[in-house]
Simulated scan of single mutants.
Amino acid sequence: MNIPEWLKPVTLGIVIGAVAVSTLGFSWGGWLTGGNATQMANRLSQDKVIAALVPVCVNLSRTDAERATKLAKIRKTSAYQRRNALMETGWATVPGSDSSDRDLAQACLAALELDKS
Rank of each mutant, 00 (worst) to 15 (best):
S117W: 07
A37W: 13
R102Y: 12
A37Q: 08
K73Y: 12
N59L: 14
G29A: 13
Q106T: 15
K48H: 12
G17K: 03
L53Y: 04
A20C: 12
G30Q: 03
V56Q: 11
S117F: 10
E88P: 08
V54A: 08
L112M: 15
R83Y: 06
L104V: 06
A18S: 11
I50K: 00
T33A: 07
W31I: 04
L32T: 04
I3A: 07
K70E: 04
V21R: 02
V56G: 00
A41C: 09
Q39E: 15
W28I: 11
S117A: 15
T11R: 05
Q46H: 01
N42V: 09
T23I: 02
G34Q: 06
Q39W: 14
A107T: 02
N59F: 02
K48Y: 11
G96S: 08
A20D: 09
S61I: 00
L44R: 11
G13R: 03
Q39Y: 12
S78I: 06
G17M: 04
I3D: 00
G25P: 10
L104D: 04
V19F: 08
V56D: 08
A18G: 09
R67F: 04
S100D: 15
S27V: 13
V94M: 13
W31Y: 10
D64N: 06
R75F: 01
M1Q: 00
K116G: 11
D47L: 09
R82D: 05
G29V: 06
A79K: 13
T11K: 00
C108D: 03
N2H: 14
T69M: 07
V49W: 02
K48V: 06
L32F: 10
D103V: 00
W31V: 09
A68S: 11
R67E: 05
A20W: 09
W28T: 08
D98W: 07
L24V: 15
T63D: 01
D103C: 00
V49S: 08
E88T: 10
I50Y: 02
R83L: 05
L60K: 13
A79Y: 03
T63W: 02
I50A: 01
A68Y: 10
P9M: 02
A72M: 11
G30S: 10
M40C: 05
R43D: 12
K116E: 10
L112G: 01
A51Q: 00
A110H: 08
G13K: 03
V19Y: 07
S27T: 15
Q39M: 14
C108H: 11
A79R: 00
D115T: 14
N42D: 09
M87F: 09
S27R: 12
R62N: 15
R75D: 12
V19S: 05
R82Y: 07
L114E: 11
T11H: 00
M1T: 15
A65P: 01
D47H: 00
V15T: 10
A85K: 06
K48A: 15
S117V: 08
F26Q: 14
C108V: 07
L114V: 14
A85P: 03
A20Q: 01
W91K: 04
L71P: 07
Y80N: 04
E88R: 13
L109T: 06
A52T: 06
G30D: 03
